[in-house]
């Protein structure tokens, strides 16, 4: 029997067969929960993890983005599910961890990618509700995702948590004080959690991305041209791709980083070393 397949489709098919047959997936048999997994860096992580054989649960509050992400993700692998949840709501967080473990029996990787960036004026003008909106998702929500995931990981013999922080948590960001403080908090939270849980088999690390081409970055730059200026001043003459962050996060999630815990990995294309600014 001859099956006619278009050339580009055939190439894709062959690549996928190759990936499945010859490459032992770096996340085979791992159940991975990705908050904020429906857009930006989170979506890139979802796709990359599926390519490496992981089972992925996408968590997001953005229903439209979940739908779109699942459509793309299912062309890579069928091992993907979604949960609509807002990580700043603790009952929803508890629920999402419980339903994941109920369904798959274990949880091996948690990527905390859910975050909001609300721009604010100088400190004296920052409103309480702006502070709360940012902190409740970026820091409190992230903490409670860890809180409920950690005992499950310990129970099944270990795991890896990767928190998506930001270079703004290291060098500050004057367009949103609460955001950069929340990200500095994530970096320190990573450090303390690792102190507590590395000995129980859970590695906890963070990645601190520089300027990355996502809807969030484009949106917060407030003008399409603004990011082009950032790119021109960058040592690589470009901003980063979400897929490049997914590689760093894959490294931290997988066994390849088996001796790394408590660390925050800067991934900014050399901009900080080059004296660049956010």
């Amino acid at each position: 029997m001859i099956i006619s397949v278009k050339k580009p489709d055939l190439d894709k098919l062959l690549i996928r067969l190759y990936a499945h047959n010859n490459m032992p997936g770096r996340l085979n048999n791992k159940v991975c929960l990705i908050t904020g997994g429906a857009s930006g860096i989170g979506r890139a992580v979802t796709i990359r993890f599926l390519e490496e054989g992981g089972t992925v649960v996408v968590v997001d509050r953005n229903r439209a983005a979940i739908k779109e992400t699942l459509e793309i993700a299912r062309t890579v692998s069928t091992k993907v599910e979604s949960i609509e949840a807002d990580v700043s709501k603790l009952d929803q967080v508890e629920n999402m961890i419980r339903s994941t473990v109920d369904k798959f029996g274990h949880l091996d990787v948690l990527v905390n990618g859910a975050g909001v960036l609300v721009l604010t004026q100088e400190a004296e003008h920052v409103e309480e509700r702006e502070w709360d909106l940012i902190m409740n998702t970026n820091l409190k929500g992230l903490f409670f995702c860890c809180k409920y995931a950690l005992p499950e990981m310990v129970r099944s013999g270990g795991g890896s948590i990767v928190n998506i922080a930001s270079i703004t948590g290291i060098q500050g960001y004057s367009r949103s004080l609460p955001y950069s403080v929340s990200k500095a908090g994530v970096i320190h939270l990573t450090f303390v959690l690792a102190n507590q849980y590395t000995r129980r088999g859970v590695r906890v690390n963070a990645v601190a991305p520089g300027s990355i081409d996502t809807h969030q970055a484009r949106g917060s730059s407030q003008s399409v041209g603004a990011l082009d200026i950032v790119a021109q001043n960058h040592p690589m003459k470009r901003i980063g791709k979400a897929s490049e962050m997914a590689e760093v996060i894959l490294f931290l999630a997988s066994e390849e980083s088996s001796f790394i815990s408590g660390e925050t990995i800067l991934a900014d294309g050399g901009s900080w070393a080059g004296g660049g600014h956010v």
Binding site: S88, V116, L117, V118, L119, R129, D132, L133, R218, G219
Partner: peptide, 19 residues
């Protein structure tokens, strides 16, 4: 003016209603 806030208004309206 702010895409980050826009997403909250779209996807966490209950927070906005309360605040």
């Amino acid at each position: 003016e702010d895409y980050g806030f826009r997403q909250i208004a779209q996807w966490s309206p209950e927070d906005v209603v309360e605040m």
